[in-house]
Design a protein around this nucleic acid. Structure first.
Lengths: 144, 144
DNA sequence: TTAATTGCAAATGGTTTGCAATATT
DNA sequence: AATATTGCAAACCATTTGCAATTAA
């Protein structure tokens, strides 16, 4: 099942309507899957093809997408929230490297995260459902 | 060396003055060491004994304390930033459990974090200086 | 004495909300 | 047709800033 169909299904399931605006905003995520977009950035992208869409709609839509689990809200301490498309497979585990020099955000690869599962095992007594790990350091580009 | 002396020293080292207000605000951390306080909460505490202190001073002071490394700014997605006294020993590594039901924040114990070091080893190629891990789940109280 | 710091009030900027018009089911 | 959603503008709220008065060094 592709992403848009999944969106359609999950929206219906929660009694939300599939509006033109929601489709357009969701498309931005499909086309910028790798990035962590802020509401303002999404608004700017959407405006180029659909100038009539309001910023408030973007915010409300992001809230709903987050609530139904299609995207994930995150905070990189840069003054705004950022959103990333949820990965169907390992949906609730997030791990990023944030470069303290250029502020670039790098997604860590699966293989690099194996040991996290060990920690989760250890922490089972807390009923952990999700984790969010940020490593702060200097990325390869800035190290040069 | 006690905390206040350390503050005094680090402030001087960075050419900041040790003002009455800074002492008062720092005392709040000594007295509420275990909590993650927001600027507003600190302001409320401080006001009871020193009503003349302004909220802006609290914000500016927290910024400086964070900059000089005496406290650490963190974000629990509850609409404000929160600060915690820096631990001299393992200063740059933070790990919390956030209860998704009661929003309580629990600091994880050292022993529970051993495996994090393994990850850090693995990630050395990124020049990692600091990490910040949040586990989301249900705490013991809420599990009952 | 002099530059940093403070308190206050006003400004800022990301996010939310009220409401009448519009679109989805 | 009934209800949710939209766009707009105004409101909100955490945080920042300008400035004249105060204080630490």
């Amino acid at each position: 099942m592709n992403l848009m169909e999944r969106l359609k299904e999950v929206l219906k399931q929660k009694d939300y309507k599939l509006t033109t605006q929601r489709k357009i905003i969701f498309d931005v995520f499909s086309e910028h899957g790798e990035k962590h977009l802020s509401p303002e950035e999404i608004y700017e992208i959407v405006k180029t093809s659909h100038p009539e869409i309001g910023l408030a709609t973007v915010y409300r839509t992001l809230q709903i997408f987050d609530e139904i689990g299609m995207i994930k809200k995150m905070n990189f301490n840069d003054g705004c929230s950022r959103y990333e498309l949820t990965d169907e497979n390992e949906s609730e585990h997030h791990s990023h490297l944030i470069c303290t020099q250029c502020s670039k955000v790098i997604e860590l690869e699966d293989e690099e995260l194996e040991s996290i599962n060990e920690i989760l095992e250890k922490e089972k007594k807390y009923n952990i459902k999700e984790y969010n790990i940020k490593f702060f350091g200097v990325c390869k580009d800035c190290t040069k």
